[in-house]
Amino acid sequence: MEELSFLEKLHNLQDTYGYIPEREISNLAEEADISRAKVFGVISFYSMFYTEPTGKYIVRICDSLSCYVNDSEDLVKAVQDYLEIEDGETSKDKKFSLEVVECLGHCGEGPVMMINNKTFTQLNEKKALNILKECK
């Protein structure tokens, strides 16, 4: 089949570096004969792509309706307090980044938290903090 699609390339870079470095953006731009601003426009559209390094663990907590009615906000609060960061921030030791996100597709098992690629469901504060404590 054809060569890698642009989106796949972005995923690969994101997976390789944990973010998409500037020089790779310039390379992509040149390859595709578009401006690097445009490539940045594409990258920044998607929540799972970053142009700056993030924490080692990206913690995503769903706060959409089904999780919300299952007290996701309490979970968010507990995690924020524990990590001492707000939504969108990275901890000083660069270990955790926190993102309060929209529906993760596990609405029947809320509240839900993803840490990098792993999904944890039916959480309460205690369970969630225990999981975070295990992130080394």
């Binding site: 500037e22 401006s35 690097r36 601003a37 445009k38 426009g41 559209f45």
Partner: peptide, 20 residues
């Protein structure tokens, strides 16, 4: 033919900006 601007982000953070 220069293209220094782009639309970036989406949702309420949508904005017109330059590279990074």
């Amino acid at each position: 033919g220069v293209g220094i601007f782009t639309k970036a982000n989406r949702g309420p953070e949508t904005l017109i900006t330059t590279f990074k």
